[in-house]
Nucleic acid binder design. Sequence first.
DNA 1: TAATTATTATGTATTTTTTACACTTAAAAC
DNA 2: GTTTTAAGTGTAAAAAATACATAATAATTA
Lengths: 230, 230
Amino acid sequence: MEKFQYDYPHPALTVDCVTFGFDGGEMKILLVKRGIDPFLEKWALPGGFVNIDEDLESCASRVLEKECGIKEVYQEQLYTFGKVGRDPRERVVSVSYMALVRTDDYALLVGNLELSVQWFPISEVKDLAFDHEEILKVALKRLRGKIRYQPVGFELLNEKFTMPELQTLYETILGKSLDRRNFYKKILATELLIKTNEKKSGGAHKAANYYQFDHNKYQELTESGINLEF
Amino acid sequence: MEKFQYDYPHPALTVDCVTFGFDGGEMKILLVKRGIDPFLEKWALPGGFVNIDEDLESCASRVLEKECGIKEVYQEQLYTFGKVGRDPRERVVSVSYMALVRTDDYALLVGNLELSVQWFPISEVKDLAFDHEEILKVALKRLRGKIRYQPVGFELLNEKFTMPELQTLYETILGKSLDRRNFYKKILATELLIKTNEKKSGGAHKAANYYQFDHNKYQELTESGINLEF
DNA sequence: TAATTATTATGTATTTTTTACACTTAAAAC
DNA sequence: GTTTTAAGTGTAAAAAATACATAATAATTA
């Protein structure tokens, strides 16, 4: 077996991904069941060792695609966890990433249908491997903070979505209910939404209009920042 | 000689510190002149390799103390830079930290008086080693963002400071001038400041009152967040 | 096919926050 | 004691956030 030698000890480096999804109800997170020790059979964030010639973001993308069949989603670096002893094997430092997945893209995963990869409502997440619960906490805090000044919620909804869907997303992430009229007013004031002619029928009630978001405006506001506090 | 072996290649792990100071004029940053290759003689962020049994924050503290004689200052993790090729020697991933230093603590450093450690006005920083200019950019962005929702500026001022000093700090970080009356109003509304009986005399004009900040309130607002947009 | 049910859609008045703006005060210098 | 310079303070107008109630319409059912 080939060995790699260094003059002084090197920690191992991994990437772990916190992947959020939203299907209209609670926020969900993607977990994988470990097939090896340590923490065999425990649920964990998808993650893996960083290849020596691989950028960190590339590693995060690779992990999500290989382990979960998800690709080309929004992702950003979260925080780096490096506490001594967080991995029982050797010193392992983990760079965490947060990914946001559209409900449309769920389908990709269902094709996999491996029981070892599953979406969990965040309220039901417990007893994760390593310090992954702490990583999840940091990710949730980031998501709640981010939604206030970036129109990030759109990464979680389908291309076309209704106003009530968008409001429910905000309410879910912020953990409080919002006044419908004020929500409409504030969201529409950003000029981020384009009203389509389509409607979402299906319920025994008035059909909701579908909206899309304006990609140009979105880009602009993501860079300049925006105040979306409710 | 080479004695640390692994089954697969490990990147090296470093910590680099962006240390901000404020002396009433421009924002300053602490740099060290490199004494070894690569980038011999170039200015760089103080940094060092992470010991195998050392936490990341501890490493940041150690680096600042050993290289710059600064200790017990506010610091937070910024971002992790890991692009392949950012270090010409081997794959090196760097976890960056931002530190905020009070002008009071400048004195510690002056004692050192090593020419290889110096404060630079950020506008004069150029041609740094590695990707350290990029790290500095990220740190500045973080500082500008952070000042809006955390009373972080206080880490940069002395225990006692005047309102004009605080305003100048905000103006410097935000890069725009603020209305004095409105600034007073908004800052005082936070109830973060305690007015002392002392005054800052010295100028050929009315003496400014010294303020301290209320540590309890500060703690509270740092956790809950605060809106300090101007 | 008319009535019922459930949810979408919308406007206005009130309160709060932000902004704009000018004069008085006091320490030091002459 | 007069001048210079920056510190300190209040109020009115504009903008933003909040609170709140009714009409519209798709599907179901009677």
